[in-house]
């Protein structure tokens, strides 16, 4: 078996790229959806708040694998359209990520003190402008660090896509293992690659935080009022 897995290394690299792309896409869609849900959660209107709460709790409470099965097996049955494995995996991961991100974004919005809203309202600004110029820029500094964690989690969860036969990193490792006689090495390679990717993301996230100056300068005074 030892001649072989090294020969498959380019395949592993390509599969790692697929996994990174799949989870990045899911994170981006999840962040967008999560932001919408968070805006609903923090809105003045009770029905919007309830819908958002239900959505968040629902997708937080059911296993991603079940959502994945629904997307892959259920959607064709109900809607009569086949989702390819990639689309099904993206959907399932994005739905889950959006429920996590909605809580992250909500915490960010709520970290901005009431005084900021009041000052902005008093100056005649309306909600969209307040979000864009006053609350958003302050919230982002609270949102960013846990978002990195959500990306790492999504990336790990993306290995579930192997179950519906989507050839991402985990599936690639399993296929290589099969064709090289079932050894231990391919699994180890898998683990190392996941570790390297996620460690790199964490480092990148830390650098990003420093650039955004999280917890520095301005958050000390005035922000909480």
């Amino acid at each position: 078996m030892n001649q072989s897995w090294v020969a498959f290394l380019p395949l592993f690299v390509k599969a790692a790229g697929i996994t990174i792309w799949l989870s990045w896409l899911a994170l981006m869609i999840g962040a967008f959806g999560g932001t919408l849900i968070a805006l609903m959660r923090t809105s003045r209107f009770l029905p919007l708040r309830l819908v958002a709460l239900l959505y968040t709790e629902f997708f937080r409470s059911i296993p991603i694998l079940i959502v994945l099965f629904f997307a892959y097996f259920g959607v064709p049955l109900v809607l009569g359209i086949d989702l390819p494995p990639f689309a099904a995996a993206t959907c399932a991961l994005a739905l889950h990520a959006s429920s996590t991100m909605s809580e992250v974004v909500r915490a960010g919005i709520e970290s901005v003190g009431k005084g900021q809203w009041e000052a902005a309202h008093a100056s005649g600004m309306r909600y969209p402008a307040i979000m864009r110029y006053v609350v958003g820029p302050q919230a982002i500094r609270v949102i960013l660090p846990p978002s990195v964690g959500v990306y790492v989690a999504t990336l790990k969860e993306s290995s579930l896509a192997s179950i519906i036969g989507y050839i991402e990193l985990t599936k690639t490792g399993l296929l290589v293992r099969e064709s090289t006689g079932g050894g231990f090495a391919p699994l180890l390679v898998l683990a190392v690659i996941y570790f390297l990717i996620n460690y790199a993301i964490s480092l990148g996230g830390a650098a990003l935080e420093r650039r955004f100056d999280v917890g520095q300068k301005f958050l000390t005074v005035g922000a909480g009022q």
Binding site: G115, A119, P137, F218, G222, Q225
Partner: peptide, 12 residues
């Protein structure tokens, strides 16, 4: 124009 006890400047 309104001026608050806690200033409420935009910290960013």
């Amino acid at each position: 124009g309104m001026i608050f006890q806690q200033f409420n400047l935009y910290p960013h």
